[in-house]
């Protein structure tokens, strides 16, 4: 047995393709980023070594970079404060409904998540369009035409609009994970509650919520990571504008790389970005004990 399962040559052949894919697709690009981040490479030009200059610029001068980080943090907190409570509420409600309705609504709520971000983003651009968008029409219909505006180019409303759209897109994911958590609470617990007469809010705060805490942690961390990685929606809706009012790191990185052609600088942003994601992940692993995986 050990002879077969310990055969070095077999192991090498089994593992090699996968490792090569990771090296080609992830490790090598990141190492290359690391190298180019120390240069002043612009577009197709040669790479001239400039040491840590790009990094110094990011940490001391680059307002846009820090605005992007702040936006990611705000998005992360918005998930926690607005999206997650709604997700959890509906997960509990779904569980309560039972029967066919439970299944139908569960399937329905996830639909926006399987539709391409491309479609849902362009859809929201049309909905918020100042001349024919239905959002302003609805506001007018309910007598709040004073609020009608160009939501996505008004500097005061662009960020809130973008946050709203991103949370709309992600609602199904959050709800589904909470729903799985609710389903994981065993029937015994519910029975015990019934016998002890714990119902409604008391049951929620002293029984259900504590039992859901592991799922809450997972969801919060997933939310934080997805907030950091936010790009597609912003790229399609506002491209970070007006000004940097709705800028996110990945989008800024893309602009620096493929519009400004500052290859050296963009790579430095990429390296800092990777480090931030890894740090958040380490915290995630420390905070969350994923058992039996």
């Amino acid at each position: 047995m050990d002879k077969v399962l310990g055969n070095k040559k077999t192991i090498f052949l089994l593992v090699l393709p996968g490792i090569l894919v990771m090296i080609a697709g992830v490790l090598f690009p990141i190492l290359m980023s690391g190298y180019l981040s120390l240069t002043s490479m612009q577009g197709g030009g040669a790479a001239k070594f400039v040491g840590l200059q790009n990094y110094i610029k990011i940490f001391t001068k680059d307002k846009t970079f820090w605005v992007s980080i702040v936006h990611a943090i705000i998005l992360g907190f918005s998930y926690m404060l607005f999206q997650h409570p709604i997700c959890m509420g509906f997960a509990l409600l779904l569980d309560k409904m039972g029967g066919k309705a439970e299944k139908v609504f569960r399937v329905l709520f996830f639909i926006p998540c399987v539709i391409s971000i491309m479609v849902t983003s362009k859809m929201w651009v049309n909905i918020l369009n100042p001349t024919f968008g239905v959002f302003n029409k609805v506001l007018t219909a309910i007598g709040m035409e004073g609020l009608a505006r160009n939501w996505l180019s008004d500097p005061n409303t662009v960020f809130i609009s973008v946050l709203f759209i991103i949370m709309w897109q992600g609602f199904g994911y959050g709800m589904l994970i909470y729903y799985a958590g609710v389903k994981g609470i065993s029937g015994d617990v519910n029975e015990a509650c019934q016998i002890d007469g714990a119902t409604g809010f008391r049951k929620f705060f002293s029984v259900t919520l504590p039992l859901l805490m592991p799922v809450v942690k997972v969801n919060v961390t997933l939310g934080m990571i997805s907030a950091l990685k936010q790009m597609e929606t912003v790229f399609l809706i506002t491209d970070g504008g007006p000004g940097d009012r709705s800028q996110f790191i990945a989008n800024y990185l893309y602009q620096q790389a493929f519009r400004a052609f500052k290859y050296g600088y963009a790579n430095a942003i990429a390296v800092v970005f990777v480090v931030i994601c890894l740090v958040v992940t380490v915290i995630y692993n420390k905070v969350i004990v994923v058992e039996d995986l």
């Binding site: 996968g18 490792i19 990771m22 697709g25 992830v26 090598f28 690009p29 990141i30 290359m32 980023s33 180019l36 990571i225 950091l228 990685k229 790009m231 990945a250 990185l253 893309y254 790389a257 493929f258 290859y263 963009a266 790579n267 990429a270 390296v271 970005f273 990777v274 994601c277 890894l278 992940t281």
Partner: peptide, 20 residues
């Protein structure tokens, strides 16, 4: 090494991969 791949944002590899 392989699992760390889950944490890397795809966006950071766009530029180096484009050059490669």
């Amino acid at each position: 090494f392989i699992l760390i791949g889950m944490m890397i944002p795809i966006h950071t590899t766009l530029l180096p991969n484009f050059l490669i």
